[in-house]
Design a protein around this nucleic acid. Structure first.
Lengths: 201, 201
DNA sequence: AAGGCAATGTTGACACTGTCAAGATAAAAC
DNA sequence: GTTTTATCTTGACAGTGTCAACATTGCCTT
């Protein structure tokens, strides 16, 4: 029994908004999101969303949180393939990280961009999903150090900041339209992976 | 003879706007910039700026162009210190790159962020200043390869994308508020430099 | 079952924003 | 001295996020 428009109570407005907003952002970009239009499309009045999200950035935080769950799952999947050599897993991780960013540019911006994190707009909900995700990056780095893939004369935290920074930087330059040519993504990933693992040929 | 408010023609509105906007952005962030407020502060009507800048992003482009000139000068200054060992210059470059970003976060966002580059909002003027700046990064990388600081089994373009990506990524994570602690900036820079130059101890 | 409370949705309003069109004014060019 | 051009003005439009006050509904308790 689907909910038609004439009902006073929508029934599941929160998740309807979340889904619609996620889709719209993926298709037309973060800036194109308007709470008013979103409400109208959901067949509801302008201010109805405020009963489900404190403000616009709370909605954006909720969307980003979904992205973190998604990505964390992917990262764990790659990392946990114990039957695959660590070296190959590392290379795969690099490719998939950049691939995720390239395939979901607006979501990536939301997750790792200034929109949310800059002025402390991040919800506690978001933080509770994002921080473990950041932490996992350190865990993986430490593992790769132990496996001899990455230099072990650096602190794991520091090194993970640099390796993550590299992936993040390449992703941003791609997403933000500064590296115009996307046909070299794989080459760039390999170059980065080679650079990090260059001791272990 | 300074121009007081009651004149119909401001006299030098373009550069006045540019300066005011640059200052405001540095102090209060890009999002705080409003053409209307800017005009009002300059003692001029709301739409006067449109006679000097096609639209808001043209103004932002002009500001970013200033930043590129500034940074390009700094980069050349570092690179051209021929009396300093290449290795030290490289390390210095890393530190100054991140330092520039950390000291001028909003300018950095403008120069290398989505605000301008994303939807082809970049003016031709901006491009003519920015592209040589990007190119210089490749030139430097090639030089460092020749000097044996960076691996020479990689294409210069590809390698410069990765090294620049690393700096860019660290810079973004810092200024976007994802790496909260700024006290470790120098350590991170050294870690990155060590990672790249680890063959040449 | 009745009444009350909390969740949810609505309309109205406010203060902003960027930007266009049409007209006014001053300066420069001829 | 007249005309063109650059510059600046007011008026208007279509948006935006968000608050306050009010309406409706469903659920929970008595």
């Amino acid at each position: 029994m689907t909910n038609t428009a004439q009902n006073y109570h929508h029934g599941d407005l929160r998740s309807a908004l979340l889904k619609a907003a996620t889709d719209r952002i993926a298709m037309h970009g973060i800036d194109s999101l308007s709470l008013r239009k979103l409400a109208e499309d959901a067949g509801v009045s302008r201010t109805a969303p405020y009963h489900h999200f404190k403000d616009k950035s709370a909605l954006l935080s909720a969307i980003a949180a979904q992205g973190f769950c998604q990505w964390h799952t992917t990262a764990k999947r790659i990392f946990d393939q114990t039957h695959v050599p660590a070296k190959d897993r590392f290379r795969q991780f690099v490719h998939e990280y950049i691939g995720y960013a390239a395939d979901n540019p607006e979501m990536y911006e939301l997750m790792f961009g200034r929109t949310i994190w800059q002025q402390d707009a991040a919800t506690d909900d978001l933080k509770s999903v994002a921080y473990p995700c950041f932490q996992f990056q350190v865990t993986m780095t430490r593992y790769w150090q132990e496996q001899g893939l990455l230099p072990d004369n650096q602190e794991a935290l520091r090194l993970s900041q640099v390796t993550w920074g590299t992936l993040h930087g390449i992703a941003r330059l791609l997403i933000d339209g500064i590296y115009a040519d996307r046909s070299h993504i794989d080459d760039m990933c390999d170059c980065a992976a080679d650079l990090f693992m260059r001791d272990t040929d």
